[in-house]
Every structure is written in structure tokens, then in C-alpha cells.
Amino acid sequence: MQTSTHLEISRRDLLISSAATVAVTGVAGGAIAQSAGNDMVQTSKVSFIVNGDIHNMKLDNRTTLLDALREHLHLTGTKKGCDHGQCGACTVIVDGRRLNACLTLAIMQEGRRVTTIEGLGKPGDLHPMQAAFIKHDGFQCGYCTPGQICSSVAVLEEIGANIPSHVTADLTSPVALTAAEVRERMSGNICRCGAYSNIIDAISDVGGMKA
């Protein structure tokens, strides 16, 4: 009943792909030959704007946005924690939406506007959220902090834009800025130093929330 050509194909495909596994492990570090299709293009030209500057790059298609920022543009403020979408250290803002730079490819960002921690503010000219993190001790080792700050800025914008969250009780009324809303929305950013309560204080301060 559930036999389809896909099931047949993938049985054959399975053999092909296990053979490919062997071949690939044999190459170790060198250039890997393409098994199927000869004229495949594995690098692409891409241009996007980072912190106001346009960058034209030629990148291996496999380059994540995170590696493009860190390894190619040397914007090392954005951190690599898990490389699996689980920690939020790589959070940046793309076209106004925060995302995990480790889960998206650089070539997918054609024409987009990327804001990293370096673009939010600099020493002497801090973004209010950066200043509030300092004021409220919103970090200890600082590794998760660039991601936390990018997320924090986006959280206030998302609440302002009436985007609901898991803890929004009434989905049809405007979303309120509360500690519970902020906490839920920050759950994608893990802090091993446990600076969470001070981070909430910083966001509340910038958001103008009554304590």
C-alpha cells in the first residue's frame, strides 16, 4: 500500500550513497570529486550588506552565514557555540528578523541586510541594549553575550510588532511587555554562566518596563 517508486529508488540509492561514503572518507582533506553531474558549480557569488557595508564575495556553497561573518569578513563578535541551532550564540539580525547564523547558508542571503553585534554599537557609541547589559551585569564570561544582545534587541521589536509567543494568554489582544514574555522569547539563547536574571533586567530597562 505504501510502496512507491521512492521506496524502490531509495533502496538503490542507499547502495550508491554507502559507496559514496567510503569514497569520501578515502579522500581525507583533499578536493572531493563530484559523484553525479559534471558541470556543477560549487562556489557562488553572493553580495549582502553587513552593518551597512556591502560585501561582494565568492564563497564555497557550503559556507554558513556564521562562517562567512567570522572567517571571511573577520567579524568575530558573532560566536559559534554549538553549530546546531541549540545555543543562540550565533544570533544575528537579517532584514529585521533574528536568526541562527549557523543554520543558514551565506549564499541564501543575497541582497539581505545583516546586523551583527559590531553593527549595533561600538565602544564610545554603545547601543542602549549594550549599555544596559553593562549596567545590569548581564554577562560573566561574555561568550553568549553578542547573541544575547542581538536577541534582546529583536525581542523588544517583536513585542512592539505584536508577534505572539508561547506565553501570550490572549492571542487577539496586543502583546504586552512583561517579564514572562521576555523570558520565553529569550529561551533560544543559552548562557552557561547563568546571567539570565540580569539579562532580563537589562531588557526590561531598555524596554521601559516597570519593575
Binding site: 541551532g85 536568526l99 509567543s165 533560544g188
Partner: peptide, 12 residues
Amino acid sequence: ILAGASAQIRNM
């Protein structure tokens, strides 16, 4: 939807 993953992942 809002119970799944994180805001960053849901944005993508």
C-alpha cells in the same frame, strides 16, 4: 507553532 523550537528558528 509558538511551542516549537526558538524564535530564531521559527523566523527561518
